[in-house]
Nucleic acid binder design. Structure first.
Length: 474
RNA sequence: GGUCUCAUCGUCUAACGGUUAGGACACCAGGUUUUCAUCCUGGCAAUCGGAGUUCGAUUCUCCGUGAGAUCACCA
């Protein structure tokens, strides 16, 4: 085995990248990164029927979008290329031949109907079906037209899992599993073992669904006389119902959709890592570098966890606040309201600074900033809905706005100067801030909320402020 | 049904066998900010059940219960 850490993410190209897949990939990636090792992408495309067009490209773009970059992979090659199983059939055949020569693999002589009846029989006897109960005494020579099966060596196993601890099973789970299908492609069960050995993978990180077949893999390692990698099993991420493994059917979402909705990649990584892992402190927000430094398999939870979108939202807000304005500006480029098309970079950054603290996702931007770029439509029902303002008549309010126009017209337009002007206005009109400021705020924005009034006015600029106030009293 | 695994607030989780069982999200109530959001303070809220070991059990053991995974020429 290699003495550098080599981990892999080995999805089958049968769909999109959901959060469960991201976590498996993330933990493998973190392990490689924190040990200065390598992270490998391998496509397990041995089931031609289930393969989905474009899925491989999708998986790769999702990994890139999240920053989970791999050192070797189907699109970039590497010392153990190819990294697509469909292009490695000769490797599997060669290893299979070793097993045949050693008398540890044989041709499956049964028809589908015969197999079905064996299964049916097991079901009526309320037993688990074992193919080896029907192992033929004199199997035909394997010509590739029928499945090739392992001649298993049933025994009890105890093995160590870096996450789950010591696991054990009895001999009755060991069976003569299929190594090569009748279409010439290997099964996952066989192919991944060969590839992991040849690619010098040191740690296998995968989902809980493989725990049941792990003893059979151990049996193959032994039959092949090869050392097995370190094993780590991740618990499942559960759907909203909280009871089932998160699958596409339960509304498992494409991780790229979260990015499109304005979640940051680092939020996704932080959140998905935290779902079943913590560093033992009370820290909740981790940068990617902190995750790399602090991650450890032995602190991964044993049980499944639910994906809570509320918590994800909160966490995204936290990560957005961690961003510098320049960084945020770059990332939020696609989210500006259409009306911002002619705004300068400087102006947009100024506005971004005002609203950064109140964004939960990047997609909140239009709602928060629309009125900075386009004149809002007056909506006096907002005044009526305001507990304090609704006590005044419209004429009284317009009179107040006229005072505001006069004062602001002569004011310097910096945040501080505006604040002074507003404070003076409070004295001259004898109004409470809750009334005067709310009124001005509404008259210039007609929005349910906005940043501090002086900052808002400053960002709008004097001409716009005066013009909007005049529109309001017209 | 067989096999395997898991089990702390509604959710994510912390707790060398000794804590008033801690934190975070959500929720509720106050407070600050002109408003909203943010922010601050406080509140609500959990060890699945039963035995056993122990001076002492969330923690170790056993038995239940519940949940999940798996039992494909899918991965």
């Amino acid at each position: 085995m290699s003495d550098v850490v080599r981990t892999r993410f080995a999805p089958s190209p049968t769909g999109f990248m959901h959060v469960g897949g991201v976590r498996t990939a993330l933990f493998a990636w973190l392990l490689a990164r924190q040990n200065n090792g390598q992270f490998i992408l391998r496509l397990e495309d041995t089931d031609q029927k289930r393969e989905v067009e474009g899925s491989a490209e999708h998986l790769m773009s999702a990994l890139h979008a999240l920053g989970l970059n791999y050192n070797e992979g189907p699109d970039i090659g590497g010392p153990f290329a190819p990294y697509k199983q469909s292009e490695r059939l000769d490797h599997y055949k060669a290893w299979a031949q070793k097993l045949i020569d050693a008398g540890r693999a044989y041709a499956d002589p049964y028809t589908q109907a015969e197999l079905d009846s064996f299964r049916e029989q097991a079901r009526t006897e309320k037993k688990a079906f074992l193919f080896r109960d029907h192992r033929p005494e004199n199997p035909p020579v394997w010509d590739g037209s029928t499945p090739l099966r392992l001649k298993s060596d049933p025994k009890a196993y105890t093995w160590h899992d870096e996450v789950m601890g010591d696991l054990s099973t009895g001999p009755d789970v060991i069976d003569d599993i299929i190594l090569i299908k009748s279409d010439g492609f290997p099964t996952y069960n066989f192919a991944h073992i060969i590839d992991d050995v040849e690619m010098e993978i040191t740690h296998i990180i995968r989902g809980q669904e493989f725990i049941a077949s792990q003893p059979n893999y151990l049996n193959i390692y032994e039959a092949l006389g090869i050392e097995r990698p370190i094993l780590a099993t991740m618990p499942h991420i559960l759907g909203d119902a909280g009871t089932k493994k998160l699958g596409k059917r339960d509304g498992a979402k494409d991780v790229l959709d979260y990015l499109k909705e304005g979640y940051l990649p680092e939020t996704m990584l932080n959140f998905i890592a935290s779902l079943g892992w913590n560093d033992g402190t009370e820290q909740e927000i981790f940068t990617v570098d902190e995750l790399i430094a602090k991650f450890s398999l032995d602190r991964v939870q044993h049980s499944g966890a639910r994906f809570d979108e509320k918590r994800l939202e909160w966490m995204n807000g936290q990560h957005i606040r961690l961003l510098s304005i320049d960084d945020l500006y770059t990332r939020i480029a696609d989210f500006w309201p259409a009306s911002a098309v002619n705004a300068t970079e400087e102006h947009k950054k100024e506005i971004l600074t005002l609203v950064q603290d109140r964004m939960k996702t990047l997609a909140d931007l239009p709602m928060l900033t629309e009125y900075f770029f386009a004149d809002p439509t007056s909506d006096w029902t907002m005044v009526d809905d305001n507990k304090q303002l609704s006590k005044f008549s419209k004429d009284e309010l317009k009179e107040l706005l006229r005072h505001a126009i006069d004062a602001l017209k002569d004011s310097e337009f910096t945040p501080n100067a505006i604040q002074e002007t507003l404070n003076t206005l409070l004295e001259t009109t004898g109004q409470k801030p809750g009334i005067l400021f709310s009124l001005i705020r509404l008259a210039v924005s007609w929005a349910p909320f906005s940043p501090a009034l002086n900052d808002t006015l400053n960002a709008l600029g004097k001409d716009t402020v005066i013009q909007r106030l005049q529109t309001a009293i017209a």
